[in-house]
Design a protein around this nucleic acid. Sequence first.
RNA 1: GGAGCCGUGGUGUAGUUGGUUAACACGCCGGCCUGUCACGCCGGAGAUCGCGGGUUCGAGUCCCGUCGGUUCCGCCA
Length: 594
Amino acid sequence: MKTHDCGTLRPKDAGTAVKLAGWVQRRRDHGGLIFVDLRDRSGVVQVVVNPERVGPEVFARAERLRSEYVIMVEGEVVRRMPGMENPALATGEIEVVATALEILNEAATPPFPIDRPVDVEENLRLRYRYLDLRRPDLQRNLALRHRVTQAIRSYLDKQGFYEIETPMLTRSTPEGARDYLVPSRVNPGTFYALPQSPQLFKQLLMVSGFERYFQIARCFRDEDLRADRQPEFTQLDVEMSFVDENDVLSLIEGLIAHVFREALGVELAPPFRRITYQEAVDRYGSDKPDLRYDLPLVDVSSQVAGSGFRVFSDAVAKGGVVKGINAGPGKGGWSRREIDQLGEFAQQHGAKGLAWILYGQAEPRSPIAKFLSEEELKAVGEAMGASTGDLLLFVADTRAVANDVLGRLRRLLAEKLGLIPSGTYEFCWIVDWPLLEWDDESGRYHAMHHPFTSPNPEDLELLETAPEKVRARAYDLVLNGYELGGGSIRIHQRELQTRLFRVLGIDEEAAQNKFGFLLEAFTYGAPPHGGIALGLDRLVMLMAGGESLRDVIAFPKTQRAMCLLTQAPAEVDPAQIRELRLRLDPEVAAFKQS
RNA sequence: GGAGCCGUGGUGUAGUUGGUUAACACGCCGGCCUGUCACGCCGGAGAUCGCGGGUUCGAGUCCCGUCGGUUCCGCCA
């Protein structure tokens, strides 16, 4: 139907007869002469309908054109007259003089403008997602996503990886997020779970001897949503045999550099920084620090341990810390109101209070300065690199609370102070994670990564005596404060896996029941292996400069996990429920009636 | 589960201390126009202000509830 793509025509095509097809972006009707901006995936080109070149019938047809009509145009590419070029348009040096024009389909007036990037209410965009997707931003983002996945596939193929699919209907596993469940009709009373990740299958593929596997895999987690969390999302899942941490990290560094080069034309400089978990938490108050700005947390416990300010000295005496952050001079000084807002923020996130000092001012403006000696003030200021007028903020609490609150404050301050440069990509690896984490709620240890993560062999003897001190052979990849993904070297020996399950409070029987197939597989010659999973949506989102996953997913869900286009989830025919041998909770049924 | 913000013609917004004709731009419809490209000019249609209740002589505006969207906390790796 078409010989060329609209957006690709250039002066060198002048004189060529072309057939184009696409959507009417805009029509400019001058009465005796009609201009049509014709758009297809490749871009826009101006079509001129001149009664001297077409019959009255075609001209009348051009007069009928409206926005988003689908048309086919035959014509000749001509250079525009001097002075008539449009530098804003890639095809602006030429135009297509129509010789024939056909309306392939009419279009209702769209509910929001397609040709301009107007901010439209989210629910309208989602309801008419197919129209939203016509707009330039989403066209660009999905094209980028395509280039990213293609770059991933070609890179990993060259590195000897096989792309292998794993089941979507699998079994529910304990640990981790809530599963999406699918009832089995053939086996009443039993359920599949949609995979949270292909974790177990990719390990089994290593036992199978594939050595290098990857998959661009859809994953499902039934948890509450965020701007960077959708209920179904896509992971680049990778697993390799006979590797250690460095092999995985350098492979991924090479992959990421390749992807950025191919898809964005951006040169990165691997290797990426490696930061231990402890360092990240101590210095940035986060296990996914944004390194586009510094703004470090400073421990001033030793400087204020003996202070007359009881809040400080008591916190230290009780084994806690006093940590601070230097918020700098602000944008032309800090108002009391701004400082109070920071204090409220700190309290909302669990601090008892936020102490502050406007450093070195003749009249040191601070509610706490009078409790600190000159020497203490000076020592604190030095530790924090303070100059006159800097706002120093402090949290005195347990180490965990102080780090968490100040880490959040750090992010807030960076935003408020405009310290975040755009268009830069600061990658880092977070390494040396704790293997386990005590969970008060369930009264047992949880795997911080997942229960198949190998402990650091140096810490193995602590596994039963001081589990929280055991380091994991795990790593996270962080970009601009977002967790892009994580992985680990896995346990590949049955004994160690059983031992770890025991520490996690999963007894032999439960382990057999839930993971028997994996434990058994390990007895048949499982190679040492490890891997990683990267959030593809997040990666593309950050590459696209977006702030929401919705901007890089063709058909995303709302925060209530609804698809406004198809109205999913929806009720089903009662017969379907009966067939599955399920019954609705009467309360739910009653609620639906009302 | 909790907190914040948003909801006014098709779209994006304005709407004063509550005061009676709800404004503007774009879009849409009709007319004119042969060099526009966010074409221009003339004319026109179109909203009971998300929904329900309350306060009031009077509610887009105040209060309560509810629905939807969104951001965050909890949750989630």
